[in-house]
Simulated scan of single mutants.
Amino acid sequence: MSQAAEKFFQHNSALPTMPEVASRLIRSFDDDNISLAALADLIGKDASLSAKVLRLANSARYSPSHQISTLQDAAAALGMETLRNLSLAACMAGAFPKVKGLDRGVFWRHGVTTAAYARILAKMVKLDAETAYLAGLMLRTGQILMALAESDKVAEVETLAVEPGSRFSLEQHRFDCTHADVTASLARHWHFPAAMVEAFADANTPMEVRPFSLMAAVLHMAEVLADAAQNKDNPTHALQVAVPELIEHLHLDLAFLAAKLEAAGDVASDVEQLLG
């Protein structure tokens, strides 16, 4: 574990608390028998989260045919994966404070976009898509802890990070670690599975790590794609510029990926409801 990353945890007050509902949602990944009704009941234990999920379920992105007024209705309309992913996104966005140096709306729009793109990439390389969504959602959260300690440096990184994927090297130069390293430390403090902790730590330079980590590669590429979406750059061209050796190593079908990204549309169009 990076010692440079651990310095952001020297004050216990800096460590956000993993929301109980989020923890139980994550555990539900391994429960093949969990029902939609049980998931809705779990979300219902948190009034604020329930309100956010209902607002999302009624939003234009999911274009419900009728007004959705209960979590059971939301569960039926959205389905298991979407319900769980939206709830996790709302939980995570609520767990972290607003910080100087990062625009909260822009930050979580990027996080939700990274999560959605990680899910698409995971399906292409035969990884678990829901785990990839959670990891993508978490990937930049370490940067919030960095901003709590050194907001001016983080703001400077964000000003300079105009090339998709450049945040990693800009942070490494200034902090001797990256947001992914700090997220790995946070995931370890939160008792995430060791494989996910490792994937965060390896996401900086996935081609340099042995054994090769598919999840780390997916996370790195998803962040590049989210950067490109934020800049309104061509996403697959951004990948070719940022990580050509990774595309080659994975034999990634860029035309297929482009079609999937196009079909997904604006995956973070409802981020305001997550933050409300």
Rank of each mutant, 00 (worst) to 15 (best):
E198I: 09
E245L: 11
K7L: 13
R27G: 05
A264S: 11
T17Y: 00
N12V: 13
Y133P: 05
D46P: 01
A38F: 00
V157G: 02
A51V: 11
R188D: 14
A89I: 07
A203Q: 03
A195I: 11
A60V: 11
E198V: 08
E156Y: 08
E272G: 02
L254P: 09
L261G: 10
V267F: 00
L25R: 05
V157F: 06
E171G: 03
H179G: 12
R24W: 02
L83G: 08
L257A: 12
P97R: 09
S151C: 07
S213R: 12
F168E: 11
V154Q: 06
A57T: 11
I68M: 05
H237Q: 14
H66S: 14
I68D: 07
A259V: 06
L257H: 09
F8D: 09
D103F: 00
Q230A: 12
K260I: 03
V209F: 01
L186D: 06
S48F: 07
Q72M: 09
A228P: 00
P206A: 06
D46G: 04
F212I: 05
R109K: 15
Y62S: 07
H249R: 15
R210Y: 08
T82C: 08
I43T: 07
M124V: 13
K260F: 04
A201G: 11
D41N: 14
H179F: 14
K7P: 00
L257G: 08
A38Q: 14
I34M: 10
R84E: 07
M138Y: 06
A255P: 04
G111D: 03
L139V: 05
I120G: 07
V243T: 13
L54W: 06
H191N: 15
C91G: 08
K100G: 04
A180Q: 01
T141N: 07
M80R: 15
N33W: 01
H191D: 15
V218P: 10
L56Q: 09
E163V: 12
Q10E: 13
K98N: 13
E6S: 10
K153H: 09
A77D: 09
A51P: 00
I43N: 06
M207C: 03
L257K: 10
L225V: 06
A74I: 12
F192M: 14
I34Y: 00
T131Q: 15
V21E: 01
L88Y: 02
A14K: 05
A115Y: 02
M207K: 05
E223L: 08
A132M: 10
E262H: 14
I247E: 08
A217K: 08
E20T: 15
F256S: 13
Q143I: 07
Y62P: 02
A5M: 10
F96L: 15
D227P: 01
K100T: 14
L127I: 12
F175M: 12
W190I: 05
K45N: 14
A57M: 04
A40H: 08
G276A: 13
A93Y: 04
A268W: 01
